[in-house]
Computed example of a mutant assay.
Amino acid sequence: MNKTTATYTDWQRLARKALNGGCLTKEEGLSVLEAEDDEVLPILHAAFAVRKHYYGKKVKLNMIINAKSGLCPEDCGYCSQSIVSTAPIKKYTLLDKETLLAGAREAMARKAGTYCIVAAGRGPTNKELDQVVDAVKAIRATMPLKICACLGILKDDQAERLADAGVHRYNHNLNTSRANYPSITTTHTYDQRVETVEKAKKQGMSPCSGVIIGMGETNEEIVEMAHALRELDADSIPVNFLNAIPGTPLEQAGRTPAMKVLKVLALFRLVCPAKEIRVAGGREVNLRSLQPLSLYAANSLFVGDYLTTEGQDAASDHQIIEDLGFEIELCAL
């Protein structure tokens, strides 16, 4: 297939291939990303056939709490909390147990099934891990929520403690391709991120790892990212789209066109057919009025704010889901 000859039949063939356990080739993946914009609806139709097979019309909601803001020694070029950022953000140490519990209650009020405790930094100190473990145990004892932790690079014993406390999922994004990684971050490596995901898997936590689109990567590299996450066997894949924050090294990066966003989400669905594909950070900025279409490929989204940027209000997300005729999937522990 190529940009000028791909047809509805071609996209349906890719859907059948995904449903039959096959993996899209690099060329097939590129055909999705490089298709004419007129092909977006047929591509989404193919992606939806796969999404519907595994998830029906259900949508999983996730809510983030920024449990520790700023004060990070890493130099990630996209992040307002990094040491190289001059963005005027709130900076604070790890939130106390009661604040984390209040966040969990808010997640339930927003109909989220997964509560994501995220802390800036290279990795947690033992004291910080104690605080998170204490809060997780209290949440698990009182609320029917799945808990995802995102605390940076983990040591083996730290991963074991989180799993023992009841953390269901650990998030550590690959963010970009292996080749592009040094242009985004120099204070840690791509392989260190892969190793942390593997440590979480080893302890029985569900692996969550995703990407940020719009950081100078090529279409070929986007396909490579999708294949890398398939190989990593990530259960949950947040697909973020750069929201360029003033004061960060990537502040001049442009937004990803909405039609490209939809092609990327369809690609990830077709490459990782049975996995939770989450349209994540930057969806409001990059998709704008086309946000509802994302759920024909993705089956999950973040509800509420992100780390240092605002999301749209939960009621608007609930309305999108209702208007599509879809259904919020409530947590089932």
Rank of each mutant, 00 (worst) to 15 (best):
T4I: 12
T9E: 15
D10F: 14
A15F: 07
A18R: 03
E28F: 12
L30N: 08
V32H: 10
V32W: 08
V32N: 07
V32P: 10
H45V: 04
H53T: 05
L61P: 07
I65E: 09
G70S: 09
E74Q: 14
D75T: 07
S82T: 03
P88A: 05
K90N: 04
T93R: 12
L94E: 08
E98C: 03
T99F: 07
A112N: 05
G113L: 04
V118N: 12
A135T: 00
T142I: 00
D156A: 15
D157R: 09
L162Q: 06
H168C: 05
Y170K: 05
N173I: 00
T176G: 07
S177Y: 02
R178K: 15
Y181I: 01
P182G: 06
T185R: 13
Q192M: 15
V194H: 13
V197L: 09
E198H: 12
I213N: 05
E217I: 00
V223D: 01
L229N: 04
D235Y: 10
S236W: 05
I237P: 08
N240A: 09
L242S: 07
P257S: 11
M259F: 13
A266K: 09
R269F: 06
L270P: 12
S289D: 15
A297N: 09
N299D: 12
D305K: 04
Q312K: 14
D317A: 05
L333C: 11
